[in-house]
């Protein structure tokens, strides 16, 4: 299976471990990723917060470039990028006048026949989960996980087309497949504060603090997620939160693809652990997974 791949700016920067682990896992599962040529930033929250047309146009340029790959599916690992591309795709399909305006702006055609999917939506397909199960060499036995989806993979469902948007299961199914002791909690789709982190770090601390406390209450030892913004917000605020005694302890934050790579015993995944601000190695060693 070959799919077009849009990594987005974070995966080429602070979330390199997400990009690398996504590539490792897809390779092992025979999913060929074709990175779209010369992609640009999706515009993220700054574009849609300040200039509606620009936000659609920036995202649409990437959709048009993805269509040039001849792949029928475009996958996006970053939830924020995913939602921007999906929203532009939705708006263009829905509004012929806007579609004309946008294609003239980007000077490229876009037929709207592309299927845009968050990477976890592909990985959680039954046939892929089966493939994952067959390839597990190191079951994540006894590793107590909670899966955190955040906002932009699931909302708004009219755009994302996610059915179980209040209780998504994509990553839970994957964690169960690799043998983790996966916990359920009711904070799967709560907000981490997203793009407020730079200007209002107090808000980020409060919201990520709630999530970390709730993960602890579910008796999880780590959080599994699929968004670079959620990852940064949950990971980088832990030192300050612990110093202020607002969380009981630090816990590692994993990209779901990192844990899949670990369970499939892809050696290179160990190179990613030093990139974490909360070192996951002591936990992994204690579980015999180090």
């Amino acid at each position: 299976m070959k799919v077009a791949y849009y990594p987005g700016c974070s995966l080429h920067g602070t979330a390199q471990e997400y990009d690398e682990s996504t590539r490792m896992v897809c390779k092992a599962l025979d999913i060929e990723l074709e990175e779209i040529d010369d992609w640009n930033c999706c515009g993220a929250s700054s574009a849609h917060s300040t200039n509606d047309k620009l936000s659609v146009a920036l995202a649409a340029r990437n959709l048009a470039l993805a269509e040039k790959t001849a792949c029928s599916t475009l996958t996006v690992p970053c939830s924020a990028c995913f939602q921007r591309l999906k929203a532009a795709d939705f708006r263009i399909r829905e509004n012929a006048e806007l579609a004309r305006e946008i294609t003239s702006l980007i000077e490229m055609p876009y037929s709207g026949n592309l299927e845009v999917l968050q990477i976890i939506q592909i990985l959680a397909r039954p046939e892929i989960v089966e493939r994952v199960r067959e390839k597990v060499k190191k079951p994540l036995k006894d590793l107590r996980t909670v899966c955190y989806y955040g906002c932009l993979t699931v909302r708004p469902p009219k755009v994302t087309k996610v059915g179980d948007y209040e209780d998504p299961m994509y990553m839970d199914v994957l964690m169960q497949a690799v043998g983790a002791d996966n916990r359920f909690w009711s904070y799967k789709t709560e907000c981490c504060s997203g793009g407020l982190a730079m200007a209002r770090s107090d808000v980020t601390k409060r919201l990520s603090g709630i999530l970390l406390n709730m993960a602890d209450e579910a008796d999880a030892e780590c959080v599994v997620l699929s968004c670079p913004m959620c990852h940064a917000n949950l990971e980088t605020r832990q030192s300050a939160l612990l110093a202020e005694r607002r969380i009981p302890k630090k816990i590692p934050i994993f990209y779901v693809t990192e844990l899949l790579a670990l369970a499939m015993d892809i050696r290179d995944v160990a190179k990613l652990w030093p990139k974490h601000l909360v070192d996951p190695r002591p936990l992994l060693v204690s579980k015999g997974l180090g």
Partner: peptide, 11 residues
């Protein structure tokens, strides 16, 4: 300006 665009309201 403090709306984080989490889309819970829209949903």
């Amino acid at each position: 300006w403090v709306c984080a665009s989490c889309e819970t309201c829209t949903t």
